[in-house]
């Protein structure tokens, strides 16, 4: 398809796609490491949903760009500065409480974002969103149950769930920062201004936090920059692992 603002349009699609792609990569780490077998399966399935959403969005971004790049090219052959995901999804998550706090935040964000994007004037983006919104409802439910179970659990699990929430919370605000976004895309109805999602997303998250007997952290937002390609140190290691096979064996198939 042709777009009146192709560069900004591609950047926006990459932002939505890269959040899902990088989140999928981090979720995959949990396979064989989760506290129980069912949780291995759950996190693998959630990661698979995220990967599927990312693939559809990357393929579409490649078409809008019109330079012949496929979903694989975009996933495996871009360098760190070309990735548009937020810091929230790219940092290591080797603590299960942190993984659930983060999943709660990401799923709450994606639930509201995809719900709004169902009305995008970009028909492909709207179609991906309409499908994805049903999937992330399950992710949100899953994360919410764990946060409540751990927060409203034992003294130890409460402390650790609160610590996890405190650790992730500073990265929440980056999701609502639309300064990277060309206002013309919002005016054209392609994109959703992230700032308009702040209240509903926070409301969704805070309802879970309250039920979990946890406290909303009073912390200053961390410095972001992911939407313009400025990432944390851990992003390079993530990409090294994710892209290693394709880069070491160009064109390999099986």
């Amino acid at each position: 398809m042709s777009s009146p603002h192709p560069t900004a349009h591609v950047d926006y699609l990459l932002a939505v796609a890269d959040d899902a792609l990088v989140n999928a990569q981090r979720l995959g780490w949990w396979i064989s490491r989760a506290p129980q077998l069912e949780e291995d399966v759950a996190l693998a399935n959630i990661g698979l949903d995220q990967l599927g959403q990312a693939r559809a969005l990357l393929a579409h971004a490649g078409q809008v760009e019109g330079a012949g790049r496929s979903e694989d090219d975009l996933a495996y052959l871009r360098d760190e500065r070309d990735f548009r995901n937020v810091h929230l999804v790219e940092r290591e998550q080797t603590d299960f409480g942190v993984a659930m706090a983060r999943l709660l935040m990401v799923a709450a964000w994606q639930s509201h974002l995809y719900a709004a994007l169902r009305g995008s004037t970009d028909a492909t983006l709207a179609a991906v969103a309409a499908k994805a919104v049903k999937e992330v409802a399950y992710h949100l439910d899953h994360a919410g149950r764990w946060v409540v179970r751990l927060g409203d659990g034992t003294e130890e699990s409460h402390l650790r769930m609160q610590a996890a929430l405190d650790a992730e919370w500073p990265h929440l605000e980056e999701l609502f920062d639309g300064s990277f976004l060309d206002p013309a895309l919002v005016a054209d109805g392609v994109a959703v201004d992230p700032a308009t999602l702040r209240e509903p997303v926070l409301s969704t998250i805070l309802a879970v936090v309250e039920e979990a007997t946890l406290a909303a952290p009073r912390v200053r937002p961390a410095v972001g920059g992911g939407r313009t390609g400025r990432h944390t140190e851990q992003m390079g290691y993530l990409l090294a692992e994710m892209q290693h096979l394709t880069r070491s064996h160009p064109g390999a198939t099986w």
């Binding site: 069912e38 698979l48 399950y138």
Partner: peptide
């Protein structure tokens, strides 16, 4: 329900 996610994306346990 023992797990909301099952052997494939479309199933629960």
């Amino acid at each position: 329900e023992s797990s909301r996610f099952g052997s494939t994306a479309c199933k629960s346990l």
